[in-house]
């Protein structure tokens, strides 16, 4: 099958093809899903190496469940996001038990990054702001505002009600805006034009 043909296939169809020994289907699925899973993990954890571990683990679970996957029952991406979200939660809980001295410092939006490009500076500031949010709020804000998922899908991923998602994202966004307020000038948001 030509590679272009895989772009039209749904995730679960690709997963079924993978189970039947189609290596190209695996590559297509990886190209489609891995960047999304990794992006979520790196924003939640704030650490690329840890995000790689979590992504690798989540993808490995997908390969193991592939032969038993029931077509049309669940969305592969939703399932994968849920696994990733849970793995991130486990990591953050373990980190809390390690002690503050051993945890990497969150990225600081103040003077240490002023020599970087503004885009990088903004992304670092956003990451630092995200790290100040409680874990569930952080996951909800990332899924809603950065990954662009709809509230019902986020509810399925985080295994909470849609109303709870709305509440989490609203509170998270407010808290983030407050956390980043002192850095407005440095981020180039001093005037109203963005």
């Amino acid at each position: 099958m030509p590679l272009d043909a895989y772009t039209d296939l749904a995730d679960d169809a690709l997963l079924a093809q993978y189970s039947q020994g189609d290596a190209a289907a695996a590559r297509a699925l990886i190209a489609r899903l891995t960047p999304r899973v990794f992006g979520h993990a790196v924003r939640v954890l704030g650490d690329r190496a840890e995000a790689e571990d979590v992504t690798q683990d989540a993808m490995m679970r997908l390969w193991k469940v592939a032969p038993h996957w029931r077509m049309g029952e669940a969305k592969v991406s939703t399932w994968l996001y849920r696994v990733t979200a849970n793995l991130c939660t486990d990591r953050l809980r373990r980190k809390r038990g390690v002690g503050l001295d051993e945890v990497d410092e969150p990225l600081d939006p103040s003077p240490s990054v002023t020599d970087q490009l503004q885009t990088r500076e903004r992304m670092d500031a956003l990451q630092a702001g995200l790290q100040t949010l409680p874990e569930r709020q952080r996951q909800a804000v990332i899924l809603r505002h950065i990954e662009g998922l709809a509230n019902p899908e986020i509810a399925e991923i985080l295994e909470i009600s849609t109303e709870a998602v709305e509440s989490l994202t609203a509170r998270g966004k407010r808290a983030l805006a407050q956390a980043l307020a002192p850095a407005r000038e440095k981020l180039g948001y001093e005037d109203d034009s963005i």
Partner: peptide, 27 residues
């Protein structure tokens, strides 16, 4: 806060397209 909300929406938009959050080729 309102001003920061607008800035925040712009930040989110930039973050969505941020290549820094992409996995490496090796990975």
């Amino acid at each position: 806060v309102d001003l920061d909300m607008n800035a925040l929406d712009a930040l989110f938009e930039q973050a969505t397209n941020d290549v820094g959050a992409q996995p490496s080729e090796t990975f």
